[in-house]
């Protein structure tokens, strides 16, 4: 039985196709304004990779910000559950997932069976989200993928303190004007983001075995800064792309559902 998981976020769309618990293919693309469009397109990308058509898919679970708008889903699940499920399946020792998405950051704690025990979202403002990094990358004219490697070259410690994404952008621009190095500014941004996210995770109590999911997890700068801010070593997800974790979890839900219905 072939199933799929589709995760439509505010910045990116992801799809995973799975057969009997094995991933056949996955796809990631930048989200369009309308989630339905993103869903169709990203699903097609994954299908093409697996050389399948929509007719081959027995069940689809949708998740993410635009989950209600995915035209072809059979069921929707929250990102909280999907990321937890995906991470737990990838690495059964995981007890906490920190997911930095486009609009929000979330920390989720799981019990020994992988069930969600507690979770928390970022407070009101959007600082501490993927959007924060995106705006900054734009302001600094640095490609999103290069943020991590660039920040690694930092030599001077700077700090960015503004809570508001928009105002933080101004702060960044003034640092540029002061002639500060881009690498140092980026490093400061990563630490600022990491500290905000760390306080989220801590408020629901961090133990050990923490992983990071979502696209931002691929940014080594944030990854390391978060480890530092939490005071524990973040675990890498056994070589699985952390960005597809939500879609993977959704696919796992689809798999379960199919097994139940057998």
């Amino acid at each position: 039985m072939i199933v799929a998981g589709c995760d439509i976020g505010s910045l990116t769309a992801k799809a995973v196709i799975m057969e009997n618990g094995n991933v056949l293919s996955d796809a990631i693309m930048r989200a369009k304004t309308r989630p339905a469009e993103s869903a169709n397109e990203v699903m097609q990308m994954a299908l093409d990779k697996a050389k399948l058509t929509m007719d081959d898919i027995g069940y689809v679970v949708g998740t993410g910000y635009g989950r209600e708008q995915i035209p072809f889903v059979d069921q929707v699940e929250s990102e909280i559950s999907c990321h937890a499920k995906g991470a737990f399946k990838t690495m059964p020792s995981v007890r906490m997932v920190i997911d930095i998405g486009g609009q929000d950051a979330k920390a989720t704690r799981m019990d020994d069976n992988g069930n969600v025990a507690r979770y928390i979202y970022n407070d009101k403002c959007a600082a501490g989200t993927g959007r924060f990094l995106e705006v900054m990358a734009e302001a600094l004219e640095v490609p999103l993928e290069e943020l991590g490697s660039l920040a690694a070259k930092s030599t001077e410690k700077l700090s960015i303190s503004n809570q508001c994404v928009i105002f933080a952008e101004t702060e960044v621009v003034s640092l540029v004007n002061e002639g500060k190095e881009i690498a140092d500014i980026l490093n400061a941004l990563h630490h600022s983001l990491a500290k905000r996210v760390a306080s989220l995770a801590r408020s629901i109590e961090v133990k050990t075995n923490v992983v990071m999911t979502g696209g931002v997890a691929k940014n080594s700068g944030v990854f390391n800064a978060l480890s530092e801010a939490l005071g524990i070593e973040l675990k890498a997800l056994n070589g699985v792309d952390p960005q597809i974790m939500g879609a993977l979890g959704a696919a796992l839900y689809a798999q379960e559902k199919k097994e139940l219905n057998k």
């Binding site: 699940e77 929250s78 909280i80 559950s81 069930n115 969600v116 979770y119 979202y121």
Partner: peptide, 11 residues
């Protein structure tokens, strides 16, 4: 949405 999510995720 957040309420629904809470009731669902926490079972």
């Amino acid at each position: 949405e957040r309420l629904d999510e809470f009731f669902k995720v926490r079972g």
